Simulated assay, not measured.
Amino acid sequence: CLYDPVGKVLISGDQVLPRISPNVSLGVTEPAADPLGEWFDSIARLKALPDDVLVLPGHGDPFTGLHARLDAMDREHRERLDELEVFLAEPRRAIDCFGRLFRRAIGPDMLGMATGEALAHVRRLEVEGRAVKTIEDGVWWYRAV
């Protein structure tokens, strides 16, 4: 993100989008990373900016009301984490979590992004001590603690 305090303009790129949340994904090359936790930290830091900045997102129209948008994105992801924790009462793979996270069918064109985002969410639950990962026959399984 780039912020111009004089002009009160924030170029947010994909970090803050007006209608959808950005794709926050965990790559299999960094399985111990916590991209969703880092994203939560980042949007919390953005709340230090004035609410009335003009936000120039990477997708969608420019908008104002930064704090309300940050709060909405934060709330949405935390609610999905809570739903996911309940869903993980039985062991699940990341792809089994798509229905809880996305509320729409995931086609082959979105499979990579959806998998990365599902992995970021189950990893966040691991970091928070709310889920554990086991590996069976090379497959990552997640269950709530």
Results as ranks from 00 to 15, higher is better:
Glu83Phe: 13
Glu126Asp: 05
Phe40Met: 09
Ser42Arg: 12
Ile43Lys: 01
Leu70Cys: 10
Glu38Tyr: 08
Tyr142Met: 01
Asp71Cys: 08
Glu79Asn: 13
Trp140Asp: 09
Leu10Asn: 01
Gly112Trp: 15
Arg103Thr: 09
Glu30Val: 09
His77Ile: 01
Leu56Cys: 10
Pro50Ser: 00
Leu54Val: 04
Ala144Trp: 04
Val16Arg: 04
Met110Arg: 11
Ile95Glu: 15
Gly37Asn: 07
Gly7His: 02
Asp74Lys: 12
Asp74Leu: 12
Ala48Trp: 10
Leu26Tyr: 03
Asp34Phe: 01
Gly116Phe: 05
Ile43Arg: 00
Ala118Gly: 03
Leu46Asn: 07
Phe63Ile: 00
Ile95Gly: 13
Arg124Thr: 05
Ala44Tyr: 13
His121Lys: 07
Asp14His: 12
Leu49Gln: 03
Arg69Ala: 02
Lys8Cys: 08
Ser21Gln: 12
Val28Met: 15
Leu88Cys: 08
Gly60Ala: 02
Arg75Thr: 11
Leu119Val: 04
Val16Gly: 03
Ser12Asn: 00
Glu30Asn: 14
Ala114Leu: 06
Thr64Trp: 12
Val24Ser: 02
Ala94Cys: 06
Arg69Gly: 10
Thr115Gly: 01
Ala72Val: 02
Arg93Phe: 05
Asp41Cys: 11
Val127Pro: 05
Val127Ile: 13
Val145Gln: 13
Leu49Arg: 03
Arg103Phe: 13
Phe63His: 06
Leu54Asp: 02
Gly13Pro: 01
Ala131Ile: 00
Phe102Asp: 05
Arg19Ile: 04
